[in-house]
Nucleic acid binder design. Structure first.
Length: 263
DNA sequence: AATTCCTCCTGATAGC
DNA sequence: TGCTATCAGGAGGAAT
C-alpha cells in the first residue's frame, strides 16, 4: 500500500490506536531492510519508551519514541508494506517488526517483498532535508504557488516529475495517473510545455485526488468516474468516449485516456 | 537534468 | 486444473 493516501491511513491508525502506550517488547526480523541503524539500536530506542507521535512525510511514516527528545522510527513501505494493530490473535504473516505495547496491544509492520526500509532518525525534517525529500503536497500550507515553484525549470515528463520524491514527496504511479487523468493532461507532456492553466488544473486535481483518496481507500471503493477502477488497457474511459491506453512513462506502467488527455 | 536499464524480493494473475 | 511467464501502487545506482 505504497502512496501517500495508504500511508496516511496507516499513520492515522497508529495515531488513534497505538500512541501513548509504552513499548514492552520489540520483535524484529528485518531481513536486510535496516537503513543506517542496527537491530540492537532500534530495539534500544523503542523498548521501554512510550510512543508519542505519528507523522508522515511523503511515503515515509515516522513514529516518535519517547518525549520531545526521543528518536523517530522511520518506516518506508516499498511496494508491500502494511501496518496492522491488533489486541489478540496471531502475528500477521510477513511481520518484520512487532511492537508489543502495554495493555496487550501489538503494532506489526509487515512487508512481503523486502523492498521496504526500517530506519531511526533524529526527526522527520532533518531526514527529509538530507535525503533529500521534496515538500509533501498534502501538508498544511503547500499550495499552487509552491507547486509552480517545484516544477519551475524542469524539462522532463510531468509524470516523472510528479513521481520524483525529491521534487514532490508522496505521489506514486497510481495517483499521478489519476491527477493527470482528472486534469486532462497526457503523462508524457514535458513540464516546460504546460501552460499556466494546465499547472493550475493539475494542482487542483492533485490536491483533490490526494485528499479524497484517503477516504475512498478506507471505504474500499473509488468512484467510477476516477481512473483507478479502470486501469486496464482497452477499458472505456469513464469521462468521455475515449479508450484507456497503457504505456511506459518514466519507467512505470501508465494509463491514460486517448481522447481527453491530449499530448 | 533526465531517461533507460538493471536490481532488490516474492505474491498474484494472466495466458497457455 | 496446473504450470509458466510476466507484472507489481517503490526506488537507488550506473550508464547514456
Amino acid at each position: 500500500m505504497p502512496e501517500m493516501p495508504e500511508i496516511e491511513i496507516a499513520r492515522r491508525a497508529v495515531e488513534d490506536q497505538a500512541l501513548h502506550r509504552v513499548v514492552e517488547t520489540v520483535s524484529m526480523r528485518p531481513a536486510g531492510m535496516l537503513r543506517g541503524t542496527s537491530e540492537a539500536t532500534v530495539r534500544a530506542a523503542l523498548r521501554g519508551h512510550r510512543l508519542t507521535a505519528a507523522r508522515r512525510w511523503g511515503k515515509h511514516l515516522f513514529i516518535r519514541s519517547g518525549e520531545a527528545r526521543g528518536r523517530w522510527l522511520r518506516l518506508h513501505f516499498g511496494m508491500t508494506g502494511r501496518v496492522a494493530i491488533y489486541d489478540d490473535g496471531d502475528e500477521p504473516t510477513y511481520t518484520r517488526l512487532r511492537l508489543d505495547l502495554e495493555g496487550g496491544r501489538s503494532l506489526a509492520w509487515r512487508c512481503a517483498r523486502k523492498l521496504g526500509e526500517i530506519g531511526l532518525v533524529d526527526d522527520p525534517e532533518t531526514f527529509a532535508d538530507q535525503k533529500p525529500l521534496g515538500p509533501d503536497p498534502s501538508h498544511e500550507g503547500f499550495g499552487l504557488r509552491d507547486f509552480r515553484a517545484v516544477l519551475d525549470g524542469r524539462t522532463g515528463t510531468i509524470k516523472g516529475a510528479l513521481m520524483n520524491q525529491a521534487i514532490l514527496a508522496g505521489v506514486g504511479n497510481v495517483y499521478s495517473d489519476e491527477a493527470l487523468f482528472q486534469a486532462r493532461i497526457h503523462p508524457e507532456t514535458s513540464v516546460d510545455e504546460l501552460s499556466e492553466d494546465d499547472v493550475g488544473r493539475l494542482w487542483r486535481a492533485l490536491s483533490r485526488v490526494l485528499g479524497k483518496a484517503v477516504g475512498y481507500r478506507r471505504e474500499g471503493a473509488f468512484p467510477s468516474t476516477w481512473l483507478v477502477p479502470h486501469r486496464d488497457a482497452g477499458a472505456a474511459c469513464p469521462r468521455c468516449d475515449g479508450i484507456v491506453r497503457k504505456s511506459t512513462v518514466s519507467g512505470r506502467s501508465s494509463y491514460w485516456c486517448d481522447r481527453h488527455q491530449n499530448e
